[in-house]
Simulated assay, not measured.
Amino acid sequence: MSTNKPIKVGISIGDLNGIGPEIALKAFEDIRMLDFCTPVIFANVKMLSFFKKYFNLEIRLHGIPHSSKAVDGKVNVVNAWKSNFKVNFGEEDKVAGKYAVRSIEVATEALINKEVDVLVTAPINKNSIQSEEFTFPGHTDYFAQKLKGDNMMFMVSEKLKVGLLTDHVPVKDIASHITPERIQKKVEIMSQSLQQDFGIVKPRIAVLGINPHSGDNGVIGDEDQLVLKPTIHKINDLKGELVYGPYAADSFFGSKNHENFDAVIAAYHDQGLIPFKTLAFGKGVNFTAGMNRIRTSPDHGTAFDIAGKNQADPSSFLQAVYMAIDIYKNRMSYMEMNKNPLQIKPTARENQGSKHN
């Protein structure tokens, strides 16, 4: 498959009362973006025309009835719904949540059907999207069901990559979720992603401890000693991975120890995302690793506090677009390099038959 053609980038629009539409349109206001990718936004042309006018953006929108009709060189907009919606910037609204979900669903269908090559998701409000039909706490959990593979929330920037053992899990339940099987699976996902998606041949991975000071040899909890440490040793012994830890999380990033590794696995959400967003905010990307399709998103939320004020910075959204494209190209190259170059050996009967012809 050629990677020289413009890559079709599907975009779910996010919460209409947040900054999603603003950053998506600002990202493609520079017409040079269309030289290397073809955006396909799943929303509504009239709605996006409203945002275009409201934020005084110089961008031409091309309405299409279906993602398969996307045209290179244009900012394509699939009409994912027909009804009108009154935008109330900065307000949590179940109707806005309904349209955000609709955009995600149609975009995901296009991704599965390969009508778009990658998907970039604008921020959603996790409360307003909840309904009887949609009960997922976020994008990652939704894609875990819809796409093939075992996934991992993987926060990525140029200099820092942090994956999670557990993501949207209450703090009181974290330790019970961290089992040897989960640790092995997450390490496998991260190692494979670093190789095929980021071109790192032999990844070095650090694992952060579950408890303060990694348990202090059992003084502050025994999960690190009984679960994490022996599993890390087993992974290294059986699979030859370069996995190290557990490291005390409180000093790991401050001492710049993360610079000695290709990626870090954190035990839980805030343990990984607080240092990541402190060090890489605005330049980071949320990547769902381990899936058979590529999905990225900016490293921030709906930003209701600045919605409608024309203050939203599209930098992280642009990074999500760039990274989705890079991962797609890396993955295609990896598949090409690792495919079997040998022809299937013909059977003796097939050889004999060819001699008589």
Rank of each mutant, 00 (worst) to 15 (best):
V227W: 00
S251N: 10
N292H: 10
N260L: 13
G301V: 10
G215E: 02
E241I: 15
S191M: 05
F304N: 13
H233M: 13
T296C: 13
Q271K: 09
V285H: 10
Q192I: 06
F287Q: 07
A267V: 12
G199I: 00
V285R: 12
P298Q: 00
D299K: 09
Q195F: 01
V227Q: 01
G240C: 13
Q225I: 12
A263T: 06
F281A: 11
I220R: 03
K229M: 07
K256A: 12
G272T: 11
N286E: 05
P203K: 04
F198V: 02
V207M: 14
H258S: 09
P275K: 06
D197G: 08
Y247T: 06
V264T: 14
T288E: 02
A303G: 05
Q271M: 10
N292L: 03
Q192T: 15
E241L: 15
I294N: 03
I232M: 03
P298D: 00
D237T: 15
I274M: 13
L242I: 14
A249R: 02
N260K: 15
K202A: 04
I232H: 04
A303W: 03
F253Q: 08
S214M: 01
S193I: 04
R204S: 13
D224I: 04
H213E: 00
H258Y: 15
V201E: 11
I265F: 02
V227I: 15
R204G: 03
V219I: 14
R293P: 06
G215F: 01
D222A: 11
M291L: 15
E259A: 11
R204L: 04
F276M: 09
V243H: 09
A303K: 07
Y247S: 02
V243Q: 07
P203Q: 03
F276C: 08
N257S: 14
D299H: 10
G301E: 05
N217Y: 09
H213P: 06
D237L: 14
D197V: 06
N292W: 01
Y244S: 14
V285Q: 11
F198I: 03
E223Y: 09
S214N: 01
I265A: 04
V207L: 14
A206M: 07
L194A: 04
Y247Q: 02
P212D: 00
G272C: 08
G209K: 04
T231L: 08
D305V: 11
F252C: 12
A263S: 14
P246G: 03
N211Q: 01
F276W: 03
